[in-house]
Write a protein that binds this DNA or RNA. Structure first.
Length: 462
RNA sequence: CGGAGUGUAGCGCAGCCUGGUAGCGCACCUGCUUCGGGAGCAGGGGGUCGCAGGUUCAAAUCCUGCCACUCCGACCA
């Protein structure tokens, strides 16, 4: 028998351990057995209990390792789908000069939700609640020809809106992460095509996140038209009441092969997804809804996880963002903006996927794929099997959180149920002696006892 | 911003009414025993009692002011 070597204090790992996998004994996972009293909704309670976030002030949170991993996974999916749809990533600052906002007139209009700051030179600054002005400034500085269009620039950046009443944890924080994309086109027709690309991109993004997001017509304000949609996911604890055709539940987003530059195809998909009835309470048309067959009506609570809209020349006009067209004339560009809130999505996903024991992460965003539970550290068979799995799975791209602690079985199960890792691989003395482990599926609670090789193959194949 | 409420150890709470050396459970540390669904026993560490004034011999406790946070409503990615 090999001499056991306690290498838990060796860090960074010299063995080539995949850093995307972790030993629990070396991780920072401050879980809570009891729920802090301020947490009212389930996602907030579970995020605090699972050690994902730490509140620093009203509506302002630190992201702890587990939360950070989920957030990063969401960001990456959003990023990939934005890129696929032709948007180009940039990064604008959180702090902006007030002068830009004076140009658009919003410095005075925005009100107290905007956090205003003065720097040491007594210059008026602000912590950006959004970036239309800044991206328009970038655009006008460099783009002067229609040949550069269409153009869509996005970034994923922290925003601050000084909400009167932050609540529901991260769901309605003051500081939040947002992906905001901004499209520039020479005319409304081009802007419509840009809008459609983002619409389709959103369908794919939310589907990849494991969510059923339903596009609902939103108020376009003074601009009017049909180019504003909120993407709503259904959850019992949603903030607003929504009404839609049940048919949405069985609709699937287009696959990755769609051609975003085929305007007609894009328009067709958008039409398909905007034809069935769907509205939030403020846009609700009782008569139209009641015209649906009783069985098709779906009335539920919803959480807004994305919002896209066309706003024409609202910023390009006052800020002089113009390009020269093929006709030799100057054209004020038509713009749209497209937001997704990754931080809110973390909470929204939990609202949609949890049970009384904890979170049930969809695989695409899970902080780890597998929770490897060594039921009896020190037992030769358990240790050997766990080390084998802990080496094999990460090597194949499966992120593992290995519970190598000597806590009791019940505590380990409770922790992994709480943090919602999709699969628990359990190595206990009885089965380990036969070279087997148990696999528990967190989503449906099903269990299987398989050989170590089968376990490896199952995750690697998936 | 209107209404309600709470601040005592990392988390959940008691103590306050009736002033007198700050306590319980969880978590944490040590030891022993346990070991497949948040173990048991024993020992231990940790607190400016939100802050500032005031009353008093003495304030977590009484008085005044402030601050922070939460919840309900109106508003929003």
């Amino acid at each position: 028998m090999a001499v056991p070597i306690d290498c838990r204090r060796c860090w960074p790992p010299s063995s080539g351990e995949n850093p995307s996998s972790m030993r629990l004994s070396r991780y920072f996972l401050p879980t809570l057995r009891e729920t802090p009293k301020e947490a009212e909704i389930v996602s907030h309670r579970l995020m605090l209990r699972a050690g994902m976030i730490r509140q620093q002030a009203a509506g302002i949170y630190s992201w702890l390792p587990l939360g950070k991993r989920v957030l990063a996974n969401i960001e990456q999916i959003v990023r990939e789908e934005q890129n696929r749809a032709g948007a180009i990533e940039i990064l604008m600052p959180t702090i902006q000069p007030a002068d830009l906002w004076r140009e658009s007139g919003r410095y005075d209009d925005y009100g107290k939700e905007m956090l205003r700051i003065e720097d040491r030179h007594e210059r008026d600054m602000l912590y950006g609640p959004t970036n239309e002005e800044m991206v328009t400034e970038i655009f006008r500085a460099y783009v002067s020809s229609y040949r550069a269009l269409p153009l869509n620039l996005y970034h994923i950046q922290w925003k601050f809106r000084d909400e009167v009443r932050p609540r529901f944890g991260i769901m309605r924080g003051r500081e939040f992460l947002m992906k905001d994309a901004y499209s520039f086109d020479i005319d409304q027709e081009g802007a419509r095509a840009a809008y459609h690309r983002m619409f389709v991109s959103y369908l794919r993004t939310f589907e990849r996140l494991g969510l059923k997001a339903i596009p609902m017509r939103a108020d376009t304000g003074p601009i009017g038209g049909d180019l504003s949609h909120e993407f709503i996911i259904l959850a019992d604890t949603g903030e607003s009441e929504v009404f839609c055709d049940r048919t949405y539940l069985s609709m699937n987003a287009p696959d990755a092969g769609v051609d975003y530059w085929d305007d007609a195809a894009m328009a067709k998909i958008v039409e398909e997804f905007t034809t069935p009835y769907a509205a939030t309470d403020e846009m609700h048309d009782e008569a139209a809804y009641n015209a649906l067959p009783e069985a098709d009506r779906l009335s539920a609570r919803g959480i807004e996880v994305g919002h896209i809209f066309y706003f024409g020349t609202k910023y390009s006009e006052p800020m002089n963002a113009r390009v020269q067209g093929p006709d030799g004339k100057e054209h004020t560009v038509h713009m749209g903006s497209y937001g997704i809130g990754p931080t809110r999505l973390v909470a929204a996903i939990i609202e949609a996927f949890h049970d009384e024991d904890g979170i049930k992460w969809p695989e695409a965003v899970a902080p780890f794929h597998v929770g490897l539970i060594n039921m009896k550290p020190g037992d030769a068979a358990c240790d050997e099997i766990c080390e084998k799995l802990y080496n094999a799975l990460p090597a194949s791209g499966v992120d593992v959180l290995y519970d190598d602690t000597d806590n009791r079985a019940g505590a380990k199960f409770a922790t992994f149920d709480l943090i919602g890792v999709p699969f628990q691989v359990i190595a206990g003395p009885r089965s380990a002696a036969e070279g087997k482990v148990e696999i528990k599926n967190r989503a449906d609670g099903s269990r299987d006892t398989v050989t170590v090789e089968e376990a490896i193959n199952r995750f690697v194949a998936a």
